[in-house]
Amino acid sequence: MSHEEFIHTLPGDPRARPLVEQLSHEYESRYGELFRQAGESAGQEMARYPDVLFTPAEGGLFVLLLRDGVAVAGGAFKRHPDARTAEVKRVWTDRLLRRQGLARRLLVELEVQALRQGYRRLFLTTGFRQPEAVELYLRQGYTALFAPDADLEALRSLPFEKVLSPALTSTPSPAFAESSLR
């Protein structure tokens, strides 16, 4: 039987590297020509946010779901300009382990931790070429902040929000691996 646990760490944690590399590759394969048209790259997008934004001291958090010590899913949130809102970033599941509910579990962990840090609302955006992410967020109770019949390619960035329920914090959460914050 596999052992799974959430740890709170930083994007630069070596255990996160395979997931971050997969996400970067996915961004390139789905949006590469758009990045190039804008004079950017998937690598620049991945480096857009410094690790410090994902530390509790700065109002953020980076979470990995480990299975037998190997990262199988990850994601983060950072402080949004509104002090009661956190912005979810980089939710990702190992491409070989999709359709197991890992992203949903990770999202719930991010919601619980955001509440514990005093947030009452989550905001996020996903790309127009990520229908599986749109489906996940809608199934998890996020509200689309765009018209469903809009030209998604013209929008490019699809915003969502969720008002958090304090009942989430009564859900037991795995131990906080504080020592992994470097």
Rank of each mutant, 00 (worst) to 15 (best):
G127M: 08
P50R: 14
L107I: 09
R121W: 04
E111K: 12
P11C: 01
R90P: 02
L164W: 01
Q100C: 09
Y137T: 15
G118I: 11
T9G: 07
S165P: 06
A73R: 08
Q44H: 04
V163C: 00
H3A: 09
V112F: 04
R104F: 01
R30H: 07
A167V: 00
V163E: 00
R95L: 13
F160H: 04
E40K: 01
R15Q: 15
Q113W: 13
E87D: 02
G101W: 09
A150V: 07
F35I: 02
R79W: 07
V88M: 09
G12H: 01
A154W: 02
A150S: 05
L66P: 05
L155T: 03
H3V: 11
R99L: 01
K78T: 05
G74R: 09
F35A: 01
R104W: 03
R48S: 13
L155K: 08
A16L: 11
D151V: 04
Y119P: 02
E45I: 00
F123K: 10
A177N: 07
L66S: 10
G60S: 06
P56V: 06
V52Q: 15
T9C: 12
L66E: 04
G43N: 12
F123I: 13
G43V: 04
Y119L: 01
A57V: 15
R30I: 11
E5I: 14
R105G: 08
G60P: 06
A71D: 14
E109Y: 08
L61N: 15
Q140A: 15
Q130E: 05
Q22K: 03
G69A: 06
E45V: 00
Y137I: 15
Q117H: 14
T125E: 12
L124D: 12
L168E: 00
F160V: 14
E178D: 12
E153C: 04
G32W: 04
